[in-house]
Design a protein around this nucleic acid. Sequence first.
DNA 1: ATGTCGAGTGAAACTCGA
Length: 258
Amino acid sequence: MRIATFNINGIKARLPRLLEWLDETRPDIACLQEIKTSDETFPVKDIEDAGYGVIWHGQKGFNGVAILARGDQPVEVRRGLEGEPEDEQSRYLEADVKGVRVASIYLPNGNPQPGPKFDYKLRWMKRLRERAAEIWAEEVPAILAGDYNVIPRDVDIYSPKAMADDALMQPESREAYRRLLGDGWTDSILTRHPAGGVWTYWDYQAGAWPRDAGFRIDHLLLSPAAADRLVDAQVDKAFRGREKASDHAPTWVELRDI
DNA sequence: ATGTCGAGTGAAACTCGA
């Protein structure tokens, strides 16, 4: 089974790209982020016509996440994280799909730092870790997939200096991410490509794509039962080079015997 | 050094967020 995560950066503007990606790569499960649409205007019919059941958690203009399942209907477990009832940003959706627990995550960017947006990012990471611990305790094969907006190590960016002051690679951001891994979650791309140099995001600005000036911020974290079945983890880099592409590339894992 | 894009508002060209 192949499970992918893809920050689509606007599902309405990107719908042709999304549909051709589903058609060409046929992921069994796809987690989307930055759908940037209210729940009412989500293109449910186009996705169902492509052969996918889907649930989504939208918001007008910004954020928004979704979970797609090929030939199946995801069963929603949770939308949003606990701990901040006043938080109205749509960044977390969790479902049972095809025998695995899947979360689609759009972690706050946190810029500028320091400041309230960075504080929100760190609080959100703490809330995520608490939810992850609850999932862990269920001992199910689980995948926490999405745009984490964290560059875990210096080898996960083309130039550490270029982003040294950015929220994506502050020590606090990295530490919060490392705590998740310390809890036992497996960073699947890191496991398969330990030396680094694998990017999932290239900025639209400053010719980042033609210069291959990218970094790795889209992650698929696996519970032990899922990590035991890890066969491969890759980035579909070519999709970043297409017309009207998202600034992220689809990133995926292959698990055997599920 | 700089280089972009999507969405909302509101009907062109700004703002915001990334």
